[in-house]
């Protein structure tokens, strides 16, 4: 399983890639997978985070999800903002092609 979160991370959420197209998805409070980071459900502390990841795990088989893992997230002005550059880029798309990835698609 991928490990992309700081061991001391406090607030975390779960992300993965969708099997069919490989696109980035986020685990929501309803136990669904969303294209948008603002829909994530947050876990506070290691125990909650491990429980959240365990809850997301069955989706690997039932929802065609690949390799779910925890990532650290902040809330800024009501928006979810991943802490690492890596996760910021996954959330938006290539920084050198703003016409590609989620950043190029308006949320309906």
């Amino acid at each position: 399983m991928a490990q992309h979160s700081n061991k001391l991370a406090k607030i975390q959420a779960v992300t993965a890639n969708r099997l069919l197209d490989g696109h980035v998805v986020y685990f929501t409070a309803a136990g669904e997978w969303s294209d948008w980071v603002d829909d994530v459900v947050l876990a506070d502390g290691k125990e909650d985070a491990d429980a959240l990841l365990a809850k997301a795990q069955p989706s690997v088989e039932t929802r065609h999800i690949v390799d779910p893992y925890l990532f650290e997230v902040d809330q800024e002005d009501g928006k979810m903002v991943p802490k690492s550059v890596r996760e910021k880029i996954r959330m938006a798309g290539p920084t050198i092609r703003l016409d590609l990835g989620k950043q190029a698609v308006a949320r309906s």
């Binding site: 099997l19 490989g22 690949v66 996954r90």
Partner: peptide, 26 residues
């Protein structure tokens, strides 16, 4: 895609056909 094969089983096969899973997509 039908779920008959797990990702662990599929990954070495896709890699043998040049298919990686990267940050945003395959």
């Amino acid at each position: 895609m039908s779920g008959e094969m797990t990702e662990d089983e599929f990954k070495p096969l896709r890699l043998m056909n040049g298919v990686y899973l990267q940050l945003h997509a395959y």
